[in-house]
């Protein structure tokens, strides 16, 4: 039973961060594309499209972090202190972006709006990029010492592989955001973004393919693990099919299914990663014996049990009202007032 709880929490923490990527992913993606939309009223519409939900989407990050602290305190402590500067920058960009959303439409001066538009867009791009870079380092492993500390000052977080995942993440969120814009807008703005979709999908698919090949070549544990756990191939191929399904659905004009495919694609990518990475929470290279696993990084079985009870009550509630809110706010965005 003990091991099951650790595995369940490995899954829940992963699911929370996946939820964050699916949800905040589209509003970060809207931010990535923001500057490419030239007209003032269109930019306003973009902000309105994410207006009611971006706040709630960021809560997934808070809850993901909280769940990581609760279930795997050692992993939380190591990652957050080890990635100090990137995480501080992530906080900075997320807040800066929030400020920009609030400020942008309050004055009509062109320079004012232009400044906050740039702030919003840069904040979104950098947030997505930092998340990707952090993930890249987690995937390939970091040099933990025997106290599970990451003296990253001796280690370059901005290595090419991590940067590649950073770039891929920006492209993925941009595509995800563009599909969301198709869903939520109409007329001229929708037509503009529709024109970008093939390029965005193409760019993402290229980056995705390069990144996958790079992972197989560069990260030594991936191929042997995949051979040992054939399930990984099933999930990975499902992921690829779902992602390839996006252009098909767009072509057929079924934007909602395209959006769901994009979400599912992210979920399956994270699942592939989780299945391959298990049982590590943070892999140590070149000394794998210093790695944090779902066992040595975890809270006690008792706490994991209590947490499961809390999550058992909380998660269905969260899911039901999150879905209700999105349902109530379905349909095309107009200018919003409150």
């Amino acid at each position: 039973m003990d091991a099951y709880l650790n595995i369940i929490w490995f899954f829940i923490v992963g699911a929370l961060f996946t939820g964050y990527a699916m949800l905040d992913g589209f509003d970060l993606g809207v931010g990535v594309l923001h500057l490419f939309v030239r007209k003032d009223e269109h930019r306003r519409l973009l902000l309105n499209a994410i207006g009611p939900v971006w706040d709630g989407n960021e809560v997934w990050l808070v809850v993901g972090g909280g769940a990581l602290l609760a279930a795997f305190p050692e992993a939380y402590a190591t990652v957050f202190s080890g990635f100090y500067i990137p995480f501080i920058l992530l906080l900075f960009t997320l807040i800066f972006r929030a400020v920009a959303i609030e400020f942008r439409s309050k004055e009509v001066w062109a320079w004012w709006r232009q400044t906050w538009d740039i702030a919003f867009s840069l904040g979104s791009i950098l947030s997505a990029f930092i998340i990707g870079v952090a993930m890249g380092n987690v995937v390939q492993g970091v040099p933990l010492d025997e106290h599970f500390e990451l003296p990253y000052r001796e280690f370059n977080l901005l290595n090419p592989y991590a940067l590649a995942l950073g770039g891929t993440t920006v492209l993925m969120f941009a595509m995800h955001g563009a599909i969301y814009i198709l869903l939520k807008t109409e007329g001229e703005l929708q037509a503009i973004v529709r024109g970008w979709i093939p390029y965005l999908i193409g760019a993402f698919l290229a980056a995705y393919a390069i990144f996958n090949v790079w992972t197989l070549v560069h990260v030594p544990y991936v191929w042997p693990t995949a051979i040992a756990r054939p399930w990984i191939f099933v999930v990975a191929i499902m992921g690829m099919l779902v992602i390839l399904n996006i252009p098909r659905e767009i072509y057929k004009g079924r934007e909602f299914i395209a959006f769901l495919s994009s979400c599912a694609g992210m979920g399956l990518m994270m699942a592939t990663f989780g299945l391959t990475y298990y049982p590590y929470m943070l892999l140590s290279t070149p000394h794998p014996e210093n790695s944090l696993t779902i066992f040595n990084a975890a809270s006690t079985t008792k706490t994991l049990g209590i947490l499961l009870l809390i999550a058992g009550i909380g998660v269905p509630l969260v899911l039901s009202y999150t879905i209700s809110i999105y349902y109530i706010f379905r349909g095309k965005t107009k200018t919003l007032h409150y």
């Binding site: 809560v59 808070v62 809850v63 909280g66 769940a67 602290l69 609760a70 279930a71 795997f72 305190p73 050692e74 939380y76 402590a77 809270s299 006690t300 706490t303 209590i306 947490l307 809390i310 999550a311 009550i313 909380g314 998660v315 509630l317 969260v318």
Partner: peptide, 16 residues
Amino acid sequence: GDIFGSVLASEGLFAF
């Protein structure tokens, strides 16, 4: 973490 974490997770799930 074993103590503080569960409280913080409750805050996230139930409150935020």
